[in-house]
Amino acid sequence: MDTHQPLLLATGVRKVYRTGSVAVPALLGLDLAVGPGELVGVMGPSGSGKTTLLNCLSGLDDIDGGRVEVDGHDLFAMSDAARTEHRARTMGFVFQAFNLIPVFSAVENVELPLLLVGTRPREARRRAVDMLDRVGLGHRTDHRPSELSGGEQQRVTIARALAGRPAIVWADEPTGNLDSAMAAQVMDLLCELNQDEGQTIVLVTHDSAIGDRVPRLIRMRDGRLVDDVRRPVALSGTTADPPRG
């Protein structure tokens, strides 16, 4: 990937939800470019289109107009099967719901997507163990989700998202099910992965404390981008601006 070219390029993206004869516009000709190594937060009121944006830019949902390129590939010029394969190989996902398989251990949950795209079992296990160690769970690899805290479960989902070495990670309210302390720890981890390893992350959140942590913050309203701000931020806890008051 050319580091001078956007990793994600969306142009004129439109999405309309239809129920019978009723059409509800969700995205209204949206343009967005995200470069390699960016950590981008997306905020906005309920119903502004944040999750729809993430689903359309990742190819989980179809679009009604426009163009979306990820890692140089036009997602909606592909067949459904090709888009699914491209998503599996180049994208990682972290959701509010952990979506872990209850009967699988942490390491089995992380290695499963690797096995599904044809990674050899021994290599899949090695990468899963390495990623769990990277997110601070090297001592919990054999524990099932019910034996882990909420914060630990979300770290497993982050390890799962990253084990395939994706070009981009999509995170939809990744701290929504966590208390403030655990949310801060998960956000610390995402910031470290972005700053230390250059992982590109697009993160949807309603939490202003999380929004304060990202170096680029986009705000949405009524299906449009209304603000796009870049600013220096500290790695842990707060923005780099001096304290107020």
Rank of each mutant, 00 (worst) to 15 (best):
H4V: 11
P6L: 07
P6G: 10
L7M: 10
L8N: 04
L8R: 07
L9D: 09
G12E: 14
Y17F: 15
R18H: 02
T19C: 06
S21Q: 14
V24W: 01
L27D: 01
G29F: 10
G47H: 11
S48V: 00
G49A: 11
K50Q: 13
L54R: 02
N55W: 00
L57W: 07
S58I: 00
G59W: 03
I63L: 12
G65Q: 11
G66K: 06
V68G: 05
V70D: 06
G72F: 03
H73G: 00
D74F: 04
L75H: 07
F76E: 08
F76Q: 05
A77D: 07
M78P: 03
M78L: 15
S79G: 12
H86N: 07
A88K: 12
T90F: 01
T90E: 08
M91D: 04
F95Y: 14
Q96L: 08
Q96N: 11
P102W: 12
V103A: 11
F104Q: 04
S105R: 09
A106Y: 01
E108F: 06
E108T: 03
N109Y: 07
E111T: 01
E111W: 03
L114R: 09
L114S: 09
T119R: 14
R120I: 00
E123C: 00
E123I: 02
E123K: 15
E123V: 06
A124N: 14
R127I: 04
D130V: 02
L132T: 02
D133G: 09
D133Q: 13
R134Q: 11
G136P: 08
G136T: 03
L137V: 06
R140L: 01
T141S: 09
D142K: 04
E147G: 01
E147T: 00
L148P: 04
E152K: 10
Q153F: 01
R155N: 07
T157P: 00
T157I: 05
I158M: 03
A159P: 03
R160F: 03
A161K: 00
A161T: 05
A161V: 08
P166S: 10
I168D: 01
W170P: 02
A171P: 13
A171S: 11
D172P: 06
D172H: 05
D172V: 04
E173G: 10
E173M: 12
L178Y: 09
M182F: 02
M182K: 14
A183D: 08
A184V: 01
Q185S: 14
M187C: 05
D188E: 14
D196P: 05
E197R: 13
E197I: 00
I201G: 09
V202W: 02
L203K: 01
V204I: 15
V204A: 14
H206Q: 12
S208V: 13
S208T: 14
I210M: 15
I210R: 07
I210Y: 03
D212F: 04
R213S: 11
R213F: 13
V214H: 12
R216G: 10
R216T: 12
R216L: 03
R219H: 15
R221K: 15
D222N: 11
D222Y: 02
P232T: 08
V233T: 14
L235Q: 08
L235Y: 08
G237Q: 10
G237V: 13
T239P: 00
T239A: 15
P243D: 04
G245C: 01
